[in-house]
Design a protein around this nucleic acid. Structure first.
Lengths: 342, 342
DNA sequence: CTGTTAGCGCTTTCAC
DNA sequence: GTGAAAGCGCTAACAG
């Protein structure tokens, strides 16, 4: 049982005025006598009065809460997105409700229900690697609740999106390997269903084509991002009759895992095999050798997506534009792809 | 303007019954005719009905939300705590409201106001490195809102806490260095005001005493955890007439930074200087050399703290016990303290 | 088993 | 300038 929290009625009674007046004083309504306002504000302060958001939300039919669904929270990527989004939301007086889906479709679905029940004023989501059905998200469209995708988006839904140019970034990454003299470039790709995997794969293929390097399907393996499996694929690559001389990994955690495995096998990076990752995650600078990777403006993704949500919230759904904002990436070259190292 | 969300009144009207009956059907109240319940449930499903938590919260005077304040979100430590806490909360039907204080006292204070305004049913907090005044937290005690400290706690407040034995863990870490033959062990400590810094420092000192190694204050530097400053202190240590042969760092990010600096100076780890960190953060296994460090059960901290909150929420404040739960740590020995490496 | 009524804390007309 | 009253969506007595 909670101790009674002080309400505007308490303040009103103590001051011998009506609760309407207290409410007006508290919300900066113009037509309140200065002395009255002063008295209210002082007493409120003294009593540690905190407006009950649950009541305000109910009457205003707004929750001043934005939902954020993240697929995982283990690497530094999504926490950083959350930071950016949270800061942006706080500026506008919004709080954020965060739910990790743990890369599990069912959890994602139940997360969206929680968001709906909590009447979030908007939601930004990055899909799990296994999400193929989007009914749970279409509910937001039907109900007219702002929805924004970030990072891992759904191409079939016409809603705003914040992404990076995965194709372009992958193309540049592979081009870098080619220009460094690599001929047999393997790609440890993400799940086939994940659009970002497809785009990065296409960037990889097109870069090879452009430089007249035949695409060898044996050098392309897509996997489900379960890091423990990386060792299997790396060994497979290394033990091929003609092993690859470079590896483009779908993301940094994969690349870092690959570096660990390759190093433990006694091979030299980049001499025997060059590695390029994707993400510039925490750790990519201090693993040895430093990981060449694509920098993704993570916090900016969060800020941008939240900004979109905030701008949608006061407009009619009819005025929402399903823009896709593409943020810039940059290839960061470190020791895993060029130079001596070690 | 949001599209009208379906309410129990809508369902009641469409079915020609009263909203109380709908409410009862939805909340599994026993005395509802099976057919009625079935009709309600089916219609609710069909209409995508979601109970409005804002209304439920208002009437129940509970928010089914637990607040979590984290000092930072950059390293893997706190996101992991959040994961654990979130999972535990979800099991009990609670959501979590997360606010990063970014190691800033004022942000922490305003975060607590947000928590109060949102009427969280409880809150777990890890203090910023600069928090010295606790008035904003005492409000929770006064109002009878469950409060639990985790990791960075406030010793002067009698509330439940979840910690690890920082003293013991630090003692073991330093003992390990001593037993590995190190004589001049430096300590890059945390802010003096932070209790965990003090405890780790004491563990460090007592280990030295125990093995009859004189404590040399010149080898102890406390700093404000701003990673960019690590290089300065490391260079200072290395350039001493008699440089240390080992370094015990307050946490892994510091230790990792130290490894980077030391390696860039051309010194060998652990031959020239051994390093031990604290936390077993993401990256400590793949930096080269691997970092010897203290494993902290991060998710378990989150789960335990949330569990305490959950158990408090239905009890009278008078029955709350200010227990301090100490979780076990373990020293993980890697290449930065023993062996050849590189 | 179900309908009626009151009320959670607040904002917002509508009066005066 | 201020008060009275209605109502946001829901639950919980209180009657039947």
């Amino acid at each position: 049982m909670k101790h009674h929290q002080v309400t505007i009625l308490d303040i009103a009674r103590m001051l011998g005025i009506s609760k309407s007046t207290v409410s007006r004083a508290l919300t900066n309504h113009p037509r309140v006598k200065p002395e009255t306002r002063k008295a209210v504000l002082e007493l409120a302060e003294e009593l540690d009065y905190q407006p009950n958001m649950m009541a305000i939300n109910l009457v205003s039919n707004k929750s001043f809460t934005m939902g954020i669904i993240v697929p995982e929270f283990v690497t530094s990527f999504f926490p950083q997105v959350v930071i950016g989004a949270q800061q942006e939301a706080a500026k506008a007086g919004y709080t954020v409700l965060i739910s990790p889906s743990n890369e599990d479709y069912n959890t994602e679905v139940s997360n969206t229900k929680v968001m709906l029940a909590n009447r979030v004023d908007g939601m930004m989501i990055s899909l799990t690697k296994e999400t193929k059905n989007f009914d749970h998200l279409k509910i937001f469209q039907r109900k007219g609740i702002p929805l924004v995708f970030y990072n891992r988006v759904c191409s079939e839904m016409m809603v705003p999106k914040v992404v990076i140019d995965d194709y372009e970034a992958a193309y540049r990454a592979v081009e870098h390997l080619i220009k460094s003299g690599r001929k047999r470039i393997a790609h440890l790709a993400g799940p086939e269903g994940l659009p970002i995997s497809q785009k990065r794969l296409n960037g990889y293929k097109d870069a090879l084509k452009k430089y007249n390097i035949p695409i060898n399907e044996e050098l392309i393996i897509s996997y489900d991002l379960t890091l423990t499996k990386v060792a299997i694929y790396i060994r497979h690559f290394v033990n091929m009759p003609e092993p690859p001389d470079a590896l483009f990994a779908i993301n940094d955690p994969t690349a870092i895992e690959a570096i660990k495995v390759i190093t433990s096998m006694g091979l030299r990076i980049p001499q025997d095999i060059a590695i390029v990752g994707f993400g510039n995650n925490y750790g990519s600078d201090f693993i040895s050798p430093g990981l060449t990777t694509v920098n993704v403006p993570v916090q900016e993704i969060g800020r941008t997506a939240m900004g979109m949500l905030l701008s949608m919230v006061n407009k009619e759904p009819a005025q929402w534009k399903a823009v896709t904002k593409v943020l810039d990436t940059e290839l960061i070259v470190r020791g895993s792809s060029v130079g001596e190292s070690k």
